[in-house]
C-alpha cells in the first residue's frame, strides 16, 4: 500500500440528505464498493484524502420497474444486478455484463453507480448503458437533474458530474429486439476488458463499444449505415472511422480494430 493510510478519513452519513449536505460543504470522494479506490490507494495514484462512505444509504439501493423503465439504484451491486429477475427480463445483457466484472468478491462489493462514476473507458457495464440510452439521475443538496448516459462523459475520465452531486439512480428504458453482449478480456475471468461490446437488434440497431476510445462509445454512424441497408462490410468500414483505439499494456490498436469489426459481424449475423 503506497498511500499513507493514516492521513485518510471518511464521513459516513446515514441518509441521502445528510450525504448531499456533507458533499455541498466539502469536496469529498464518494466510496461505495471501493473496488477501484483500493487499487488507486495501493499504487499511490489516488491523491484524495477525505471520503464519503455512501454504503449505508438505503436510498441508493434496489431495482424496480417504473412504467417503461428499469430503475437501478446507483449503490446496487453487480451481484444483485446479475441475480435480479427484472434485469434478466428487461436488460439481460446488463446481467451478463455484471456477471463478467472482476471476480465474485468484486461483484459482491462493486456497484453500477461506481462503474459509471469511475469513468473508465473499459468499464464492463458501460456499453450496455450506452445502448440502453440510460438516464442518470444526479442529485445535489439543492437540485436534481437527469443526464443522458450518452452525454455524461466529456473526455478520458471526465464527466459532467459536479463535486456536490451524487449519482442516485440509473434508468434503462425498455427496448424491443435481441440484445447482444461480448466482453473480450485479458483472460477468462478476473480481467480488464481489451474490448467490450453491447448491441440491440431493433429496427434502428444500437451498438456501443468500450476500450476503443477515451470514453465508452455509441457508434451512431455505424448504426445509421446498418439501418440504412449498408452491407456489413461497409458498416465495419464506418465503424473503423468511429473508433480510436490505442496500443496499451493490454492489447494493440490493430487487434482492437480487427476484433471490433469481427464482433460487429458476429452480432449482425446472430
Amino acid at each position: 500500500m503506497k498511500s499513507a493510510l493514516s492521513q485518510l478519513s471518511f464521513a459516513r452519513p446515514r441518509t441521502l440528505e445528510e450525504a448531499l449536505t456533507l458533499l455541498r460543504d466539502e469536496p469529498l470522494v464518494p466510496i461505495a464498493g471501493a473496488t477501484d479506490l483500493y487499487v488507486g490507494l495501493n499504487f499511490g495514484t489516488l491523491k484524495a484524502q477525505r471520503f464519503l462512505d455512501i454504503t449505508r444509504l438505503e436510498e441508493l439501493r434496489g431495482i424496480s420497474v417504473t412504467g417503461d423503465r428499469l430503475v437501478i439504484g446507483a449503490g446496487t451491486t453487480y451481484t444483485t444486478i446479475m441475480h435480479s429477475a427484472s434485469v434478466r427480463a428487461h436488460w439481460p445483457i446488463l446481467a451478463d455484463a455484471a456477471s463478467q466484472v472482476g471476480g465474485v468478491q468484486i461483484q459482491n462489493r462493486g456497484t453500477l453507480g461506481g462503474n459509471v462514476a469511475n469513468a473508465s473507458p473499459a468499464g464492463d457495464t458501460l456499453p450496455v448503458l450506452a445502448v440502453a440510452d440510460a438516464i442518470l439521475q444526479l442529485r445535489s443538496a439543492q437540485s436534481q437533474r437527469a443526464v443522458p448516459f450518452n452525454s455524461f462523459y466529456t473526455g478520458y475520465r471526465q464527466t459532467v458530474l459536479r463535486p456536490d452531486e451524487l449519482i442516485v439512480s440509473i434508468e434503462l428504458p425498455m427496448v424491443e429486439g435481441k440484445q447482444w453482449f461480448r466482453k473480450v478480456g485479458t483472460r477468462a475471468a478476473q480481467a480488464i476488458s481489451k474490448l467490450v461490446m453491447a448491441a440491440v437488434r431493433t429496427e434502428a440497431p444500437r451498438i456501443a463499444l468500450g476500450s476503443v476510445a477515451p470514453t465508452p462509445l455509441r457508434l451512431r454512424r455505424t448504426e445509421a449505415a446498418l439501418a440504412g441497408g449498408s452491407s456489413i462490410e461497409d458498416a465495419i468500414g464506418v465503424l473503423q472511422t468511429e473508433i480510436t483505439p490505442i496500443d496499451d499494456l493490454r492489447s494493440s490498436e490493430a487487434y482492437r480494430r480487427a476484433v471490433a469489426g469481427n464482433l460487429l459481424r458476429r452480432f449482425w449475423a446472430s
Partner: peptide, 12 residues
C-alpha cells in the same frame, strides 16, 4: 501488477 500480468485463473 497482477491486473496486467495475467496468469491463468481456474476458468483459463
Amino acid at each position: 501488477s497482477l491486473t496486467n500480468y495475467t496468469i491463468p485463473t481456474t476458468l483459463d
